[in-house]
Amino acid sequence: MKTLICGSMAYDTIMVFKDQFKKHILPDQIHILNVAFLVPEMRREYGGCAGNIAYNLQLLGGHPLIMATVGDDFAPYAQRLSNLGLAQDHIRLVPGTFTGQAFITTDLDDNQITAFHPGAMGHSHLNSVSLAHDVTLGIVSPDGREGMIQHALEFAERDIPFVFDPGQGMPMFSGAELLRLVEQASYVTVNDYEAKMLQDKTGKTLKQIADRVKALIVTLGADGSLIHADGKEFTIPTPKPAAIVDPTGCGDAYRAGLLHGIQKGWDWEMTGRLASLMGSLKIGSRGGQNHKYTRMELADLYREHFGSRITL
């Protein structure tokens, strides 16, 4: 059973400014802002929603297929995917473009200034769900606007259940478009802020949205998550992380657990707990793809935190 992951592939360039932004930005002069920050510490991480979700799903023993568009600079990422054994059949190179890039500068107060260049993501509609075979589940995660609309429609037309994960792409859509995407999906997952935005844009309550899908999942960070399904609300706790290092990619790790539980046909409590565990484990390492666990280790950690066994 293969899971088709439609979404972004990106490089995250993270820089640390060894001071506080507020000391160097004059509030009364922001109309002529011109500042430069010396960043002696810099690292580059492999990221993007599709890349992060696929990485985590493979840790769980799933069979992810990545569908994404990338640029001329993708070679190092392609080599990484080869080393990890992740298929690249549905990753399309768009000549003359860059792979998606996030440039993040953080100060000592953990404030961030981020610039994001979508690059090849704007061509995601060049990929088609019809080109992927033996797919029994999918996810439409943040990507190019046209691509997200197209891939959701293609999943629906082929009766392939999929998760709609609008994420930071939500502002690209009108309320009517979001409602149509929700109705095409089998599952919807958002964080608490996105849940409020989804309600505001569609004019629907969470219950009304949940009634349109098999499950509506709302993540709450350290407070766990809520799963609205089968007319019930399941409260899912978050295991206390061993360390809090970097929240980048925690949501993607959670979604991988969600996809794995759905593919396995688990109940919502077990599925949600696995998803929550994946997010909690990810926060203990930098970047979205640097945590490493065997399936046995993950199963042991699940039993340790939740007192029951799972077979991954």
Results as ranks from 00 to 15, higher is better:
103 F>M: 14
94 V>W: 01
95 P>H: 01
118 P>R: 06
116 F>W: 07
93 L>A: 09
109 D>C: 09
84 L>R: 08
92 R>W: 05
108 L>T: 09
85 G>R: 09
110 D>G: 04
116 F>T: 12
115 A>V: 13
80 R>I: 12
94 V>Y: 00
104 I>G: 03
90 H>K: 08
88 Q>K: 10
84 L>V: 05
96 G>F: 03
85 G>F: 12
98 F>P: 03
102 A>T: 09
83 N>G: 13
89 D>Q: 10
109 D>F: 06
84 L>E: 13
118 P>D: 02
108 L>N: 11
106 T>C: 11
98 F>Q: 13
116 F>A: 12
117 H>K: 06
107 D>W: 06
111 N>K: 11
100 G>V: 05
108 L>R: 10
113 I>G: 09
119 G>H: 00
83 N>K: 12
82 S>T: 14
101 Q>T: 14
87 A>Q: 11
84 L>D: 10
117 H>P: 00
86 L>S: 01
120 A>D: 02
105 T>P: 04
95 P>M: 02
122 G>V: 10
83 N>R: 11
89 D>N: 11
85 G>Q: 12
97 T>M: 07
111 N>P: 06
92 R>C: 11
97 T>Y: 05
84 L>P: 03
102 A>V: 07
101 Q>V: 09
91 I>L: 02
98 F>Y: 12
118 P>I: 01
87 A>H: 05
93 L>Y: 00
87 A>R: 08
100 G>M: 08
112 Q>E: 06
86 L>C: 00
115 A>G: 08
84 L>N: 02
84 L>W: 15
97 T>L: 03
119 G>R: 01
95 P>C: 04
105 T>C: 13
106 T>V: 15
85 G>C: 13
94 V>C: 07
106 T>I: 15
80 R>T: 12
120 A>G: 04
113 I>K: 04
122 G>T: 13
115 A>Q: 06
114 T>Y: 09
84 L>Q: 11
113 I>C: 13
85 G>Y: 09
83 N>P: 02
82 S>D: 14
81 L>E: 04
117 H>N: 10
107 D>T: 07
107 D>A: 09
104 I>E: 07
102 A>D: 04
85 G>K: 08
121 M>S: 09
95 P>N: 04
102 A>F: 10
94 V>D: 00
108 L>I: 08
106 T>P: 03
114 T>I: 15
87 A>E: 12
97 T>H: 07
93 L>G: 04
99 T>V: 02
82 S>N: 14
116 F>Y: 15
114 T>G: 12
96 G>W: 04
104 I>D: 05
95 P>F: 01
113 I>N: 10
103 F>Q: 10
118 P>C: 06
100 G>I: 05
95 P>I: 01
88 Q>M: 08
88 Q>L: 01
89 D>M: 00
91 I>N: 02
93 L>S: 10
122 G>L: 15
80 R>M: 14
104 I>A: 05
96 G>V: 03
100 G>L: 05
91 I>F: 01
116 F>Q: 07
82 S>H: 13
85 G>V: 14
111 N>L: 08
